[in-house]
Amino acid sequence: MPKSAGHPAAWRTIRTDLRRHWSIYMMAMPVIAYYAIFQYGPMYGLQIAFKDFQPTKGIGGSPWVGFEHFNHFFNGIYFWRLIKNTLLINAYDLLFGFPAPIVLALLLNEIRGRLFKRFVQTVSYLPHFISIVVVAGMMADFLSRAGLVNQILSSFGMTPVDFLKEAGWFRFLFVSSGIWQSVGWGSIIYLAAITTIDSTLYEAARIDGAGRWKQTLHVTLPGIMPTIAILFILQMGHMMTVGSEKVLLLYNPLTYSTADVISTYVYRKGVLEASYSFTAAVGLFNSVVSLILIVAANSLSRRLGDNKLW
């Protein structure tokens, strides 16, 4: 980031920079305007996290309450469980869900038949379009006590498992169904990145006697590394969020101990009392943690391979 702008030397640098690149800065105007108006403009709304927001009084007119909402959240008896569950689901997702589309893209890249490849690509991205409600409904059907999965299990002589009622299974089911739904969709960006790799690099590798495995390892993977790194950094920004919709459809009080996450807790509290302020306070807390994680991931990635956001 730029050094303190009060220094005369810094001013000189800025002046030169503006003079030299004025055409790019002019070009940036609509983008800067967009971010200023539509992203930073509404940010005054964050203050309701410290207020008791009342629709009749508006954002400015609602009374300040300081950290009251934060205290309620942090002091709730389920606070640590919520944090743990949220982080663990995301950690599983990072561990398995993040690499899955990369692996799929690499495997697709190895397919020689063009039509077959296109077919697999198209088919594998279909689940992305099926709504969560239907996905959850199918899971409940197939995973129930008398469902398909248990029929298969018992035909192999195994004892049936009541998957959706056992807390131990929740994370696995949640993350794996998520992978199933998004792996094809997620692989698209990597497939695009692979196509932009300079083909002369492959030729050079072949001349050096590299087989396909070596080519993948030494050309393809490094070629998409910037994309991987950037997506990794951005993924860190989601470590504190698990969407409530799917959890609400899949969990029940028996699996609360592993399934109840921040967003579902906020949802249940919202049923008792529509509280913009509490929701905003939790959101702000998540945002702060997310930003810290992004900054950390960014500096880690910069140190490891000079792939960085800023």
Partner: peptide, 25 residues
């Protein structure tokens, strides 16, 4: 009142969670 209902919601969000879990158990 406004004040009462936000206090109420804070308490009951936790209690309802616990009650529902224990009911099943």
């Amino acid at each position: 009142t406004d004040e009462e209902s936000s206090k109420f919601a804070s308490i009951m969000a936790d209690i309802n969670t616990y009650r529902d879990e224990m009911l099943l158990k």
